[in-house]
């Protein structure tokens, strides 16, 4: 049940007109069993190539790709097909067979594997459709369904052969925000109940924030930053990561700096995480150290199941240094944005 995916110095380049164009260079990543791992990047960053390496729809041109310790790039055709049956995949445009009913689409991977009797297949299909909430649509054709329903069929189909890994290729990018949330909830539920490892790629920060445990940020075919989602997105280091965070929060840092120019005092950013988010730390410290604060900007939200708060404050009067030390000893993160 433990399925670790390891990328070891993976390279991928495409031959275009006699020249090698690199798509991925030197990827080193480990995806742990049972986690939801997100890969975020703009189009052309190499994320859809990266996710396709895991079931070898794309072959790496260098490096090793280990699943459960075995280098899958050395698999022969039979082993590769067996591997692919253990890896489900869903797509941005669903890729359902328009000529088959919903039930037949879900049964398709089982028929390809050819291991189940007709009765067993029917039972499994009914069970899967019930899981994704589409039992009453079994005999419809995909063209009669909404986008969200189509993706649910895609998920049921991907789960048919009881895979250990589920790959999601921009699975919610063609859906409206509400439908996106319901599909993400379904994915999180599957991850929890079946212990499935989910690898998803997206260009939407909200998707990462809603369900991922860890994230890798891709830019120009390289992983520029990776780690637990909260670490990466509360304290982004790379410019690409910072841009993603700003885009999703609708904040323009330069504009903000201009706005704060006339505000007196030291400007800091405080980050609370977990239970600390709900503690009355700010008021206590202000009272004890005699500092005044004004809140310039801030948000309180959740990353997956962790609440967090991030406030931009201007501090004046009293013992500001002592206040900063107190914040840190209370377990908050302090970043200085501007000295007095």
């Amino acid at each position: 049940m433990t399925t670790t995916i390891q990328f070891k110095n993976i390279h991928k380049s495409y031959r275009v007109g006699g020249r090698d164009i690199p798509a991925l260079s030197g990827i080193d990543l480990t995806i742990n069993p049972g986690e939801i791992f997100g890969m975020i990047g703009h189009s052309g960053a190499g994320k859809s190539t990266l996710v396709r390496l895991i079931n070898l729809l794309e072959r790496p041109t260098g490096g090793e790709l280990l699943i459960d310790g075995a280098d899958i790039t050395r698999f022969d055709n039979d082993a590769l097909r067996a591997l692919r049956r253990r890896i489900g995949m869903i797509f941005q445009h669903f890729n359902l067979l328009s000529s088959k009913t919903v039930a037949d689409n879900v049964a398709f991977p089982l028929r390809l594997a050819g291991k189940k009797s007709r009765a067993e297949t029917d039972a499994r299909v009914a069970e899967l459709l019930a899981r994704v909430g589409l039992s009453e649509h079994a005999s419809k054709y995909p063209s009669q369904l909404s986008g969200g329903q189509k993706q649910r069929v895609g998920i049921a189909r991907a789960l048919a052969t009881e895979p250990k890994i589920l790959l999601c290729d921009e699975a919610t990018s063609a859906l409206d925000p509400q439908t996106t949330q319901s599909v993400l909830r379904l994915l999180a539920e599957i991850n929890r109940e079946l212990g499935l490892t989910i690898v998803l790629i997206t260009h939407e920060m909200d998707v990462i924030r809603t369900i991922c445990d860890r994230v890798a940020v891709l830019d120009g075919g390289k992983v520029v930053e990776h780690g637990p989602v909260a670490d990466v997105f509360l304290h982004p280091k790379h410019i690409t990561t910072k841009r993603f965070v700003q885009e999703s929060e609708h904040v323009d840092e330069n504009e903000q700096d201009d706005d704060f120019a006339h505000v007196p005092g030291r400007i800091i950013r405080l980050t609370f995480r977990g239970e600390a988010t709900y503690e009355p730390v700010l008021g206590k410290v202000a009272r004890d150290c005699g500092v005044d604060f004004s809140i310039l900007a801030g948000r309180i939200d959740r990353i997956k199941d962790t609440p967090y708060g991030q406030l931009t404050l201007a501090l004046t009067g009293g013992d500001v240094d002592a206040a900063l030390a107190r914040f840190e000893s209370e377990g908050l993160t302090v970043e200085a944005l501007r000295d007095a």
Partner: peptide, 14 residues
């Protein structure tokens, strides 16, 4: 649609 071929390949089809 090429995506349909890709999806079928991803299921381990010959």
């Amino acid at each position: 649609d090429r995506g349909i071929i890709e999806a079928t390949q991803a299921m381990g089809a010959t």
